[in-house]
């Protein structure tokens, strides 16, 4: 299967089809950036989970995937942004087993394990921005 080159990816997340689109475009970008299959799969899975969180808690938002450089390091960052209800206690949301929407409670801690860096900026009523980075080895 041939793929057209992908620049930075920005996908509006409003339905389950958008989840598939976001992870597929993110995968292409990571492949193009020289990541190996295992890393590409971890990035695609993380995108899928972050997009699901948007649907579940905020109903809509966006996923942006782009390449990042820091010093001699090169990688991709995944930003999940929504204007939903926000996360009251970010520390609690990152504990294994915690969930408010009756899911398995694995979402954020599990997603963090797939990536190298993981940052949440959120407050009740002001939406959520999650930035996750994976560096190329």
């Amino acid at each position: 299967m041939s793929r057209t080159p992908v620049d930075d990816v920005c996908v509006a997340i409003r339905s389950d089809a958008d989840v598939v689109a976001a992870r597929s475009l993110g995968r292409s970008l990571a492949e193009q950036h020289g990541f190996g299959t295992t890393d590409v799969t971890m990035i695609a899975t993380a995108i899928s989970e972050l997009a699901r969180n948007i649907l579940k808690y905020a109903h809509e938002g966006e996923i942006v995937v782009e390449t990042v450089e820091r010093g001699s390091m090169s990688g991709v960052s995944v930003v999940a942004r929504d204007d939903g209800p926000g996360i009251p206690d970010v520390g609690l949301a990152l504990q294994d087993g915690f969930s408010t929407a009756n899911s398995l409670g694995l979402g954020l801690p599990g997603t963090r394990r797939l990536m190298d860096e993981f940052e949440i900026v959120s407050a009740p009523g002001s939406g959520t921005v999650i930035t996750a980075i994976k560096w190329r080895r």
């Binding site: 299959t37 295992t38 590409v40 799969t41 971890m42 899975t45 989970e49 294994d96 398995l104 694995l106 801690p109 599990g110 997603t111 394990r113 797939l114």
Partner: peptide
């Protein structure tokens, strides 16, 4: 697939 299995385990599934 092996890399899918790896990601599932990392995610806790």
């Amino acid at each position: 697939q092996p890399e899918v299995a790896f990601s599932m385990v990392q995610l806790g599934l």
